[in-house]
Simulated assay, not measured.
Amino acid sequence: MEKSVVEIERTASILKLLGDKTRLTMVKMLDTNDYCVCEFVGIFKISQPAISQHVRKLKDAGLVQETRRGQWIIYSLNKDNDYYPLVHSLLQHLPSQDFKLQELEEQGLRISCD
């Protein structure tokens, strides 16, 4: 019985985390592409420390994972997280955000981390 209380509390904290428009948009974007912080800075037009704070919260919740590629840290959705099916289901109801990546590419700001 105690386990279900923990799951509801954890689910509520995940939903609260995604209740922030910037974080929800980031997660939707990470559902189709991996990004580095500097790309998010270019897309959201907010400071690097603010973006890093959002990413850290998502990472602390286990929703996002990081991979180092040379000097870059690349963020992706953690599809192994127990809450990924819930998050993925939620994301299916949201419009694609891929146009933000296209805008970044058109501005020449897409980072090539390979």
Rank of each mutant, 00 (worst) to 15 (best):
M1E: 14
M1G: 14
M1F: 14
E2M: 12
K3N: 13
K3E: 15
S4R: 11
V5Q: 10
V6A: 15
I8M: 14
I8G: 05
I8S: 14
E9W: 07
R10K: 09
T11S: 13
T11H: 04
S13N: 09
S13C: 01
I14S: 00
I14Q: 00
K16P: 00
K16F: 10
L17F: 04
L18F: 12
L18N: 07
L18D: 08
G19S: 15
L24D: 08
L24Y: 12
L24K: 11
L24Q: 12
L24H: 10
T25V: 11
M26F: 03
M26S: 01
V27E: 02
V27R: 04
V27Y: 01
K28V: 06
M29I: 06
L30V: 02
T32D: 09
T32F: 03
N33I: 08
N33K: 10
D34C: 06
D34P: 01
C36N: 15
C36K: 14
V37Q: 13
V37K: 13
C38P: 03
F40P: 08
F40W: 09
F40T: 02
G42E: 02
I43F: 05
I43Y: 05
F44I: 00
K45T: 02
I46M: 11
S47N: 06
S47C: 09
S47K: 10
Q48M: 14
P49V: 14
I51L: 13
I51K: 05
S52I: 03
S52C: 06
Q53P: 04
Q53K: 15
R56V: 02
R56S: 15
K57R: 10
K57G: 00
K57F: 05
L58G: 08
K59S: 15
D60N: 11
D60W: 01
D60C: 01
A61D: 06
A61L: 07
G62C: 08
L63Y: 09
V64I: 07
V64L: 03
Q65R: 13
T67P: 07
T67A: 06
T67H: 13
R68H: 04
G70S: 07
G70M: 05
I73K: 13
I73N: 09
I74Q: 06
I74D: 02
L77G: 00
N78I: 01
N78Q: 09
N81C: 08
N81I: 02
D82K: 09
Y83I: 10
Y83C: 06
Y84I: 02
L86Y: 14
L86P: 04
V87H: 07
H88M: 01
H88G: 02
L90W: 08
L91C: 03
L91K: 02
L91T: 04
H93A: 03
H93F: 13
Q97L: 07
D98F: 01
F99A: 01
K100F: 04
K100E: 03
K100R: 09
L101T: 12
Q102I: 06
E103P: 00
L104M: 08
E105R: 13
E105A: 14
E105T: 10
G108D: 13
L109N: 12
L109F: 11
I111G: 03
S112P: 02
S112V: 06
